[in-house]
Every structure is written in structure tokens, then in C-alpha cells.
Design a protein around this nucleic acid. Structure first.
Lengths: 244, 244
DNA sequence: TCAAAAGTGTTCGATATACACCCATGC
DNA sequence: GCATGGGTGTATATCGAACACTTTTGA
């Protein structure tokens, strides 16, 4: 074992975080992508937002930093979900070139820890100088991205369902603070990629105490205005501890 | 950002895997621990089996290598479950000393990717020269271990339940190839830390096609001999694809 | 004959599924 | 007045939870 270490005494192993941030546009899930600055001329060059982990940080802190830069939100909801470690993931010469350009450093090996996060899609995003642009992209129309970022998104879609089952409150991170029942249903349909029966969904929702109906209704719609609901975090947290 | 990298141009970041291997002794879950070789005199020095990731490997391969060394099994069942990345995890001087002794290298920062695995507890384990001993330890009586290994085991206990729900077949990795219904029930009780009703459990199990009753029975027991069952992998895999 | 564990059914409540029509509104 | 989505109830099947006594065997 020591011989293997001795050989690569000067090998630089770096660890990054990459964030899959989902947003919901009332029809489908979207992923937040950034356009990386590069010298190389090319059509588009979109990737997941991410960063190397700094010396004083742990991975959660690095992911929070990346998302705070993009959204300005300090206490964003966020979940580590998998490490991607294949030595092959940094074999594409374009990607190696970009890494050295972006970090002014030789990077022999880069593994990444991926994070899942959720964001209201109409939130104003920051202009982050190191990116040419920041944009939402429908999850079914993603471009080919560098490294293994397409695979990371693929696996994050399975993770989001496990997350919702474990903590149903996180879906409200994707909706405006007042929302209709059909917005909520369409969000579930997008997450589970499955149509849900309107009446059964209504029955289920009306049994949930922490989804509170308001007197307010939609305005400016060309049909009967739907009732608005809000998510009550306090009732949600009580849910576990009380027997009813 | 470049300044931060420039400063630590020569910082050695290493990435390891650590494996939480569970075994079941008919009463409780046990974790496989190794005693590390150390110059320092001390009473006991148990930790999770693990290794740095080698240059040509990905993390899954490193975890397979570690477990193959210990058990001799090539195709062991295994699941990545979380990365532990705090800069604080390698702040204990004893741990730093051991790392430098074991790897003959300066290691400034070590993050680890933890794996969950399952093993029949009466399997003969290999003598691995780099460890003084390899032993099973009941999960409720773990010693204080180096780094954040106690926390890793803690979190692996939550993960194992999610794993069983996603893939119920994995519980049979913890049982002998022929087992009684009460052994299976006690295993579920250990995993969920909850007593299960014998009759309801029986009803559930007898409805599962891939748990096959045999004609064989227990021998040498001081009470009525229980029927043996086996797990049928072929029927298990069919389960998903056929409608019933 | 005693101790220890095996083996076995019924009832009840909760939950998921399937399914169709009228209502309110803006254009 | 029509197009668009809002709003609602019933019947059935399935699943999980509670619950107690008899049987077999070896010591």
C-alpha cells in the first residue's frame, strides 16, 4: 500500500460539490444550470453549479456557499446524496482544460459530492461573475454536460422521491407561499411522473392538517378561481409528536 | 478562489472508504471491527475497516477491495451511503499519528465515503496481516472509535432500514441459506428495533412467493422443531416484472 | 410432566383506487 | 354560450393491527 502512496506523493486529489437545484414551473421540474466561462469557443457550455471544497469547510458548507452565491438564500434546504468518484470522470480533455483554466492548478483527480436542493423558480437569481449566465432548464431537455453531470441529475431524480417520502414538507420549497391544490397535484405528478386522480388527491390533501385552506382565491384566471392554500410549518412539526 | 488554492497547492487531500459491515447473531446486529496496528501502547484500538482510495480505483472498487480482503467474498452486496467531510474529523493527535504511521505520508485532510454491507456472521473471516484482529461487536456495545466512526455507524443504522425497504432481498444476506421464520422475524425486529406480532408476521411471510418453505426442519432443539425456509432469488427478480 | 417455542384465524379500522357530473368564470 | 378548469362522494379492495390458545418436542 505504501508503494502506491509513494508513487503519487504529489498527486493532487481534489474534492468538489455539485448541486442539482430543482425548480417547478407548474408543468415540469427544471434544473438550475450555469454557463461556465471558458476561453474555448463553443456554442453553449452548461453545467451544474459547483465548487471545490475549501480547506476550512466541510462539504455541506461548500454546497451552502455555492447556493448562497446563486440565490442569496442563507438557509436553503439541501441534502447530500451521492459521491461520484470514477477516475474516468475527468478524462475528457475539454474538462481537464477548463479545470486548469478555472482553478489555475494542476488537478489530477477530482471526485465530487453531489447535493440536491429545491428553489422557487421565479426567485430572482444573483448575477455571479464567474458564470456567463444562470438559467433554468427543463429536466427532460438537458444538454450534454461536462464530467458526469448528466448522470448526477439522473440519479437525483430518484433521490428526490425518497426525500419527499421521508420529509413531505420539502415539496413546499418548490411552490409559492400560497398555492392551489392543482399546483400541488401537478408538482406531485412531475416528481412521480404519474398522473394522479383529482378526487383522490383532494381527499388526501383535505385530511392533512398542515395544508391550510385560505379564504383567498386566484385572480385573473379565465375560469372558476381556485382556492389558495398555505403550508403551516408549525402544524407540520407538531404532526410527529402528537398521537393525533 | 484561486488564492485559496494557491495557498494549499501542496496540501494533501486524501479520500478513503470506510465500511460498516453488519452481521446478525440471532439476537442483535453486530458490526465488523478491526484492531489497527499501532506503535502506541493502549488497551484496544478498534475501528471500521477502510482504506484510502487508490489512484486507479473508484470508491466502489476500493470498498469491494477492503471487504474482499476481510471476507474473501468477491461479489459482496454493498451500498455507498454518505460522505463524511468535516475538517475536524482528523484533528485528534492520536488519529493523525496513526495515519502517518500506517500510510508513511503526511495527510493534511482526509474525507471518507462510507459504505454499508451485510455478511453472514458465522462466515470464516480472513486473517489480514495489517490488522491485529478482526471481530464482531454488538451494535449497542461499540467502543469509542477513532475519527468519526461512531457517528458513521449511527447513521448506517438509519440507512439499513431505507435499504431494506427499497430492496427487501438484502435481509437474506444476513441469514444462513436455510432459516426459520422466527430467525427472519428476529432479524426484522433487530433492524427496526421493534417487536413484531408473530401471527401477523407469519401472514405476511406466507404471502411472499420468494420465501419458499422447505420440507426440512430444525434438528437438535429442545422444543418443537421449526420449518426451514429458503430465499429464491429467481422468484424475487420475477416479482417486479409480472403483474402477479 | 414441564419448559420452550411452533403454529395458526378473525375482526376491525384505515387507506388506496376507480369512477362522472355539475359549477363558476372570463372571453 | 362555450371553453376551461374547479369542486365534490360512494363503493370496493387491500393492508396493517390487535388479540390467545393448542401442539410438539427434548430434557
Amino acid at each position: 500500500m505504501n508503494t502506491i502512496l509513494a508513487k503519487d506523493h504529489f498527486m493532487q486529489t481534489y474534492v468538489s460539490v455539485d448541486c442539482v437545484v430543482f425548480g417547478f414551473d407548474n408543468t415540469q421540474l427544471n434544473v438550475l444550470l450555469v454557463e461556465r466561462n471558458t476561453q474555448l469557443p463553443r456554442l453553449r457550455d452548461l453545467k451544474l453549479p459547483g465548487s471545490l471544497i475549501y480547506q476550512h469547510e466541510n462539504a455541506d458548507e461548500a454546497a451552502h456557499r455555492v447556493l448562497n452565491e446563486l440565490t442569496g438564500i442563507k438557509k436553503i434546504t439541501l441534502k447530500q446524496f451521492k459521491s461520484f468518484t470514477s477516475p474516468e470522470r475527468t478524462r475528457n480533455p475539454d474538462d481537464i482544460g477548463w479545470l486548469e483554466f478555472a482553478y489555475s492548478n494542476r488537478i489530477d483527480r477530482l471526485i465530487t459530492i453531489s447535493y440536491l436542493s429545491l428553489c422557487k423558480i421565479n426567485r430572482r437569481l444573483n448575477n455571479v461573475s464567474k458564470y456567463q449566465s444562470v438559467e433554468w432548464c427543463p429536466v427532460n431537455e438537458l444538454p450534454t454536460m461536462p464530467f458526469d453531470h448528466n448522470q448526477i441529475v439522473e440519479e437525483s431524480l430518484e433521490e428526490i422521491r425518497r426525500w419527499v417520502e421521508f420529509d413531505p414538507a420539502i415539496v413546499f420549497e418548490l411552490l409559492p407561499s400560497k398555492f392551489t391544490e392543482s399546483e400541488l397535484r401537478k408538482l406531485y405528478e412531475a416528481i412521480y411522473r404519474k398522473e394522479l386522480d383529482v378526487r383522490n388527491f383532494h381527499k388526501r390533501i383535505s385530511g392533512i392538517k398542515y395544508i391550510v385552506p385560505l379564504e383567498e382565491r386566484q385572480t385573473k384566471v379565465a375560469h372558476r378561481a381556485a382556492r389558495l392554500f398555505k403550508f403551516d410549518k408549525i402544524l407540520y412539526n407538531k404532526r410527529m409528536t402528537t398521537i393525533e
